[in-house]
C-alpha cells in the first residue's frame, strides 16, 4: 500500500544537498530539529531518517572509498552495496574476535599467553 511516488519523493528529498546539510547540522547543533516532534516518530519519518543516514554513508564512501557513483542509481544498487558492506564488516569482526591477542599489563611488558590450538 506504500505509495511508490511518495517513496521516490522521500528518497529524492533525503538525497538533496539541503536535507543532507540539515541532517549534518542537526547532529552538530542542539536545538536544531528535522521534525516538529522529537519522539513518537511516524512510519514515514522513520523511513526518511533511514534514507538520510544511508545517503550520508554512501556520499562519504564515494569520496573516501572511491566506490562507483552508480550506487546512487536506485534502491537495488544501494541495498546491495549496504548488504555487502554489512557482511564484510561482520566477517572482519568475526576474524578479529577469533584472533588471540597478547595483553600488555604494564607499559612495555607483554605477557605472552600460551597459544591454544582451535579444535
Amino acid at each position: 500500500m506504500y505509495n511508490m511516488n511518495i517513496s521516490k519523493s522521500l528518497q529524492k528529498l533525503a538525497r538533496s544537498v539541503r536535507f543532507q546539510n540539515l541532517f549534518f547540522a542537526c547532529k552538530e547543533l542542539h536545538g536544531l530539529k528535522l521534525f516538529e516532534n522529537t519522539s513518537d516518530l511516524s512510519y514515514i519519518q522513520q523511513q526518511f531518517l533511514t534514507h538520510l543516514y544511508n545517503f550520508e554513508t554512501i556520499s562519504k564512501d564515494i569520496i573516501t572509498e572511491k566506490i562507483s557513483k552508480r550506487v546512487l542509481e536506485d534502491e537495488i544498487m544501494w541495498n546491495s552495496y549496504f548488504l555487502w558492506k554489512q557482511n564484510k564488516k561482520e566477517d572482519k569482526t568475526k576474524k578479529n574476535s577469533n584472533k588471540r591477542q597478547d595483553v600488555k599489563l604494564v607499559m612495555g611488558k607483554t605477557i605472552n599467553f600460551p597459544k591454544v590450538e582451535d579444535k
Binding site: 562507483s68 546491495s80 552495496y81
Partner: peptide, 23 residues
C-alpha cells in the same frame, strides 16, 4: 548471493557491464 556480488562490484568499481548483469 547476487546482491553480495553486485555490492562488491559497486565497491570495487568493476565497470558497467558487470554491474548491469548482476542488477
Amino acid at each position: 548471493n547476487l546482491q553480495m556480488k553486485l555490492g562488491e562490484s559497486i565497491a570495487k568499481n568493476e565497470g558497467n557491464t558487470v554491474v548491469d548483469t548482476y542488477k
